[in-house]
Design a protein around this nucleic acid. Structure first.
Lengths: 110, 110
DNA sequence: TGAACACATGAACAAATATTCATATGTTCA
DNA sequence: TGAACATATGAATATTTGTTCATGTGTTCA
């Protein structure tokens, strides 16, 4: 490849790329899906809202581990909480999540 | 919540969850999207196939860094390579990627 | 053939991350 | 109020991960 042609291509692609900050945010967003504990938590929440101790039972991990991970999910607006007495009930924030999930499944099941 | 009711819920959800192995694979798949360098590489490849050195120029990182990341993308079947003389041209493997990308963008731009 | 180039890869290091333990916060109910 | 329970959080640790440097592999062309 000629050097000049190379430069042109690089310039053109750079110009069409989304804002760098946006791409960093996007990576942070997908990072949340990149852990099996969080994936399992989200998967459990597809069915219904659940308390923290239920989730801990389902994924077979410590309550504190689950609390930490739920905080991460909250920070990225993937889940919301509802307090009811002593318990906190978590549920999914929106339906993008399930779609992203399904697309991932489609890919790996090919 | 009564203890017995808790158990029932846990059992039911567990029964409906996908295979644990599948969820681990899914997490590994999304892990690939969870790094800004890889996101930027994929984003560049939306436009057209590119050589390694072009990609390195576009994302502003070392050639070896890009090669390492491309290997990870290859391992998860997200990109494919074509050799042409001294250069390797990378391109996206399928169109799931762009859809997943767009859904992520929709989420963070809300 | 051998020099020059493009790319791939192993080792080393630094930074980020997940988990656990211990403990703090907040709620209920006797 | 205080004991019991559910959840949240800080600190410590082990592991994973991304980047770089140095070098290996494969290709072209003089």
């Amino acid at each position: 490849m000629a050097h000049e042609e190379h430069k042109e291509i690089v310039q053109e692609i750079k110009a069409n790329m989304p804002n760098a900050d946006t791409l960093f945010e996007l990576a942070d967003f997908f990072k949340v899906f990149g852990d099996s504990t969080r994936i399992r938590i989200m998967c459990a929440l597809f069915e219904r809202e659940l308390s923290v101790c239920c989730i801990a039972d389902i994924v077979g991990m410590e309550q504190s581990t689950v609390s930490h991970q739920l905080r991460i999910l909250r920070q990225e607006n993937l889940v919301k909480v509802r307090r009811d007495g002593k318990q906190s009930y978590y549920s999914l924030e929106d339906e993008h999540i399930q779609k992203i999930f399904e697309m991932g499944l489609e890919h790996i099941l090919e």
